[in-house]
Amino acid sequence: MDQFIVKPLFGGDAIHWYTPTNVTLWMALTVAAVALMFVAGTRGRAIVPSRSQSVAELAYGFVHKMVEDVAGKDALRYFPHIFTLFLFIVFANFLGLVPMSFTTTSHIAVTALLALAVFLSVTILGFVRHGVQFLELFWVKAAPLPIRPILAVIEVISYFARPISHSIRLAGNMMAGHAVIKVFAGFAALAAISPFSVLAVTAMYGLEVLVSFIQAYVFTILTCVYLKDALHPHH
């Protein structure tokens, strides 16, 4: 598990809140990657895009369409926030696949903060937009009256379980993939099964590339779903 340990970059033992650690390094690289893709890549502003510019436009169009399709047109105001989340997660996940790197999104502290930010802002947004009517989200009008209270309890529980599953899904996926790769890599020390082990590491790595993207996609699309609930709480 030592690939997940947070270490200060410049020696020392104490980790204060401001200490530059490997978390800092890899988050800085994430920001640098985003900047490279979206500032250097789109510098040309060409009508006929260069290769890097069209990748940036592709990402923009992908998330833009997702927000519009899932959460509706009026959610496009929050598109920059959602795009920020998506880019941070996708680049952190991919950078975490570089050998010897540190996966910032495999830490529950990071994903919990992301999920809590989404949860709190969506809840606050819902109350600001609809006031007390936002609570109708938990009062399912489609169901017969006697079972509505039960449904309301279930809905409330599932509402508060959202940030937990939202954050643990991302962190768990990232952690599990890396742990599995490490377990297979550990078997490579035994000469007899090392070919199998190398093959398995390769296959897992490919799967992890896929999972990295899909988890970023899922995180973003769930954010869009929650945003839709806040904007249109009536089922």
């Binding site: 980790i15 800092t24 988050m27 994430t30 920001v31 795009f83 989340l85 910032t104 992301l114």
Partner: peptide, 17 residues
Amino acid sequence: NQIFWLAVSLVLIYLIL
């Protein structure tokens, strides 16, 4: 530590975007 640096990088990405 992690939360602080996460907040910093999210704000940076948001500003860049």
